[in-house]
């Protein structure tokens, strides 16, 4: 599937044994993966797996304590988010970096406004801003009714889409998406997934952070699965199936335990008992847990 696209080749970004501690807490330990142009690398993990720490390292907020970050094959040290941005790494945060009360076109160019004129008469080129916003959104297949409407009136999916279109327009080569689908309904999430594919088709490298394997599997080319700050594996799509991935993330043993626990809580309540039975059955069906990880790892 990946071979069908012209992009690929050398990794855009390579992580080699990245670790990060906060005092005695090990947030990340020995994380390695690669991102290629025109590919989507999904980072999966439950809450506390270390996903947020990983994003912050990639977007220049934190420096890793150990390990290497290679951008375009050369060791990279991003001292600040601005430097990462200048290098072409754009992060679309969960809080989106958009101002709800401002018009879509004002938000689109916020911080990088086009200007015309000279000296004190240099003004914000509003005509260009409006035109480019409209064209860029249309180019990504994003259909916004009116670029003059405040961003606050857009739906969550639409906002994510505008943020992605903005990053693409400003020359991002690597797009980091922090849980872009987590707060969205099924349909809206589908819309955002489509834009992820769009960005990939345009030759961008994409890091898609999510806790939802149903969202990750259809768009991903590579999957890094984190748990409690450690890597459960870094797989190409051909190496893992969706069910294996889900099982790896959820942890079969833990589901089984949850089933027993609910059994105890349920007592005589037949409805609750049925739920517990189902969970236990599911856990058994999925077989043994993935690679053992419940060692001394600290919460991420």
């Amino acid at each position: 599937m990946t071979a069908a696209r012209p992009a690929g080749g050398d990794p855009l970004l390579e992580l080699r044994n990245i670790s990060k501690h906060f005092g005695s807490v090990i947030a990340l330990k020995d994380i390695s993966t690669t991102v290629r142009a025109g590919q989507v690398t999904c980072v999966l993990g439950d809450n506390g797996a270390g996903k947020s720490t990983l994003i912050k390292i990639l977007s220049g907020v934190f420096a890793p304590d150990a390990g290497e970050l290679l951008f375009d094959g050369a060791p990279a040290h991003f001292g600040s988010p601005r430097k990462a941005l200048d290098a072409g790494i754009a992060t679309v945060y969960q809080d989106l970096a958009m101002v709800p009360l401002m018009a879509v076109w004002r938000n689109f160019f916020l911080g990088s406004e086009p200007t015309k004129g000279w000296g004190p008469l240099r003004v914000f080129d509003r005509a260009t801003a409006r035109r480019v916003t409209r064209a860029e959104l249309a180019g990504m297949g994003i259909d916004i009714r009116d670029t003059d409407q405040p961003v606050g009136t857009l739906s969550g999916g639409e906002r994510q889409s505008v943020a992605i279109a903005r990053a693409v327009h400003f020359g991002a080569r690597l797009l980091i998406l922090d849980e872009p689908t987590s707060a969205l309904g099924v349909k809206q999430a589908g819309v955002v997934l489509r834009y992820i594919v769009q960005a990939r088709e345009r030759g961008l490298g994409v890091i898609f952070i999510t806790h939802n394997p149903q969202h990750a599997y259809p768009v991903g080319d590579r999957f890094l699965i984190l748990k409690r700050g450690r890597s459960l594996g870094d797989f190409a799509k051909s190496e893992i199936s969706r069910d294996e991935m889900t099982q790896l993330m959820a942890g079969g043993t833990e589901l089984e335990e949850l089933g027993h626990e609910l059994d105890r809580v349920a007592g005589d309540d037949p409805a609750m008992g049925a739920v517990a039975e189902q969970i236990t059955a599911e856990a058994v069906a999925k077989g043994p847990d993935g690679p053992a990880v419940d060692g001394p790892a600290a919460p991420g």
């Binding site: 101002v99 401002m102 916020l110 911080g111 914000f124």
Partner: peptide
């Protein structure tokens, strides 16, 4: 309404963290 600075005024008032994130 017509300058970059004006855009920044709305931005820092609307959401200062968001505007910092995009380089205002």
């Amino acid at each position: 309404l017509r300058t970059r600075f004006g855009n920044w005024i709305f931005a820092v008032g609307g959401d200062v963290n968001a505007s910092r994130n995009v380089g205002v």
